[in-house]
Computed example of a mutant assay.
Amino acid sequence: MTDLPPLREVIAKHGLSASKALGQNFLFDEQLLDRIAALSGNLEGKAVLEIGPGPGGLTRALLRAGARVTAIEMDTRCLPALAELDDAFPGQLKVIQGDAMKIDHTQLMGETYAVVANLPYNVGTALFVNWLGGEQWPPRWSSLTLMFQQEVAKRIVSAPGGSAYGRLAVLAQWRSSARLAMKVHRSAFTPPPKVMSAIVHVEPKEMPGGVSAQVLERITAASFGQRRKMLRQSLKSVPGALDALAKLGIDETRRAETLTVAEFVEVARVLT
């Protein structure tokens, strides 16, 4: 490994600026980036998928930690800067130019992998739901360490009863453990976003038996799509859902935010 120039110099050299259209915000603090990489545990020799590396700030930290990084970047402007990292860490970095939403990550990686990413704001939630979805469990990813807007991060780890609790919490917690691992102040970014950020760490756990992920997703989408309404109203469009509530002794006058993750899972089990 050779000494690398400061990230700000790399940005200036390649004439880069954060693209609002691509949801980019760059991090330059190398100590902070090393701390973020460390949240995934020991990465020495491990396969890591990074989405939206930009000029490669977090990528550097992952490579320093010994990870074998596959990075998917849509912005062709950033490719020369990432190529310099490939030269500095021979054999550790593979860069894929393309849209992460259109790439099969499991097929791309071909092995068990961790995901570590400062996700572009405009696709972060969609990517997260994709990683949590599907009937096959456990997934090929061993953990997700992801930067979101703080509001989104709180929605992922929230408990029933509050305004933050919703579909993301249920999808994240029914067969995974999710925790808020670190808050990141807006001033750490260039340009500073209007909101605070936070990092969520997710690890898969055993999947409850007899439950379809697709059914659970349909129930939560309907329930929280009309979260101010009682379940008897929000779930009437889901065939059999009201009968399932009755069978389980769940009061249909309750609202979605009062149901626990376990209760949503039980409704899904009845309908699976």
Rank of each mutant, 00 (worst) to 15 (best):
A198E: 10
S187Y: 08
V157C: 01
S163K: 13
G162V: 06
A198Q: 12
P192Y: 08
S223Q: 08
L216D: 04
V184R: 02
L144G: 05
G133I: 14
V123G: 01
A169T: 11
H185E: 01
N118V: 08
Y113N: 05
P208K: 14
E111P: 03
G210K: 03
G134I: 01
E111T: 15
R140N: 06
E206K: 14
E217Y: 12
V215I: 14
L146E: 02
Y121G: 04
R179M: 03
Q214L: 11
A159D: 12
T112W: 03
L132R: 10
L119F: 13
A114M: 03
A222T: 10
R179I: 10
P204M: 13
S176L: 06
A159C: 01
A222I: 11
P191I: 01
R179Y: 00
V152E: 00
A213T: 12
E217K: 14
R140M: 08
R167C: 03
L171C: 08
W174I: 06
E111C: 12
L180Q: 13
L119C: 06
A114T: 07
A178H: 05
E206H: 12
V116A: 09
V200E: 08
P139Y: 14
W131H: 05
L127V: 04
R167H: 05
Q173C: 09
L127G: 04
R179A: 06
A198I: 12
W174V: 05
